[in-house]
Design a protein around this nucleic acid. Sequence first.
RNA 1: GGCCCCGUGGUCAAGCGGUUAAGACAUCGCCCUUUCACGGCGGAGACAUGGGUUCGAUUCCCGUCGGGGUCACCA
Length: 549
Amino acid sequence: MNYKDLADLIFPNAKPISYYEEKYPERNLPEGAVVTRFAPSPTGFVHIGGLMQCVINRQLTNQTQGVFLLRIEDTDQKREIENGVQQIVDSIHDFGIEFDEGMIDETHEKGNYGPYKQSERKEIYQAYAKYLLEQGKAYPCFATAEELEEMRKKQEAAKIRPGYYGVWAKYRTLTVEEAAERIKNGEPYIVRFKSMGNEEKKIRHHDVIKGNIDFPQNDQDIVIIKADGLPTYHFAHAVDDHLMRVTHVIRSDEWVSSIPLHLELFQTLGFKTPKYCHYAPILKEEDGKKRKISKRKDPEAAVSYYHEEGIPAEAVCEYLMNIGNSNFESWRRANPNAKMSEFKFDISKMSVSGAIFDLVKLLDVSKNVIAKYDKETVYEQTLEWAKRYDAELAQMLQDKEYSLKVLGIERGNTKPRKDISKWSDVKNAIFYMYEDKFFAQDIHYEYDKIQDKEEIKKILSTYLEKYFNINDDKKTWFDKIKDLAEELGYAREVKMYKQEPEKWPGHVGDISTVIRVSLTGRRNTPDLYEIMQVLGEESIKRRINKLLA
RNA sequence: GGCCCCGUGGUCAAGCGGUUAAGACAUCGCCCUUUCACGGCGGAGACAUGGGUUCGAUUCCCGUCGGGGUCACCA
């Protein structure tokens, strides 16, 4: 009995690894092409950090003509949720990101390097596990949970490094005969990797983002195949990223401490190691301390949050890109109308320390993104959002022609309006422009300087009778308001008033404020002339007459 | 606790031995303006700390402190 016999006993049907090596050949890609993957577990909604990874990966693979694939890591069946894959695909899609290969829904996939779902790659992992077993580089371990627990306690009591290694690796030294005997007797077991590392020795590793890092070598005999026959993350990572010919493993830095293990795994399996890029996760500040942004506690950790809030996908991606490469911001200033995909992303320039998520900054980015949209885009996107999250707004937008006029106010010119940073702001911004909404509400009419009711009535009635003409151009329109101010004893220019404020009860601005408030119910609005043009003669008269009455 | 990483204004960040220590967001003031949103100008605000090395340290080395990650048949 030798290692080969034992391997055959454990995985009798596994294919030789040469089968897979041939089935998944080196990719024929241009020089420098990057192959990356997004490899989530289908355990719930997509995390903002996951989205960031996708944004970065997509950018990097686009600019190198590489491949970005979606692999589903579902080796822990306990944690799986219903429609987990679909959820991932959909939410990433919401942000305009497509995968070149991988799962496209719960059961379908595209690409030649699949299956892209780990639970369907069982035989592949077993083939590679068998390959190691044959060489005595892996072995069956019969330790029970109790045994392991006991070992841990002893280690703890003795204050030594915990784990399954060296002298603690009890089943490592079992003879093949003994092992085979136990297996034949039906004893439960798992497969462990037989580490040849020495904890006393150091290895140096170069991470694309973090630079050189020194670690002790790995000496843990980690589990590679679990009792359910599925691999652990570490083993699946090595096998999959090798067979899928991934060149860059881009993942959150919670994985850095596994580098020695992964390096040893790749080496022992005879795989070429990919480049590792460990980025810092997005953080959240709480009680003056930083912590990883969490699905449990932080609504903004879920990418669905941005969708619900109505923050354009483009804005979220730009914000994330900026966290990735902070020079994105200056590039954006220099290229205001360029597509984000034209930006040259440099993964090695990513920050080594984690950034606290800044919603205020995101909204600023978003405000600028929206300011560049034309009215049609604003209309379409707002409507799409409203259909899902705000029925009243969706109903308001029914009248497309009118809504386009409303949304077009101060838009498309050189200094576009910047008062909307998310679609959920739109309703409040345009509410008063809709006749039924305007009259349905309980308007407070908070006037500013001129508060006297009779005076207000006088201003409005005089304006309507003598000065109002919907066909006036902007200059004429405002000149008439100045005339009105003058007629009623106010300063026709603000400057005049400021020079001798005691001379007049107020100025033309105060008069226009009265008109503004009367027409809109608000003190602050976009350009009054444009508003009046959109409202039209009938509406203006109706609004003013209502007040006069 | 062991191992590993990190530490520039409130936040994100340039910086790679000699700088008046950029810029963005936020904040404050002024200007522009019929209000607001913009836009313009300006202000306040930072190299965690103690030792070295050096003619000179934010930058290099060591310690301290602080923060984070990781030590599973989870990923």
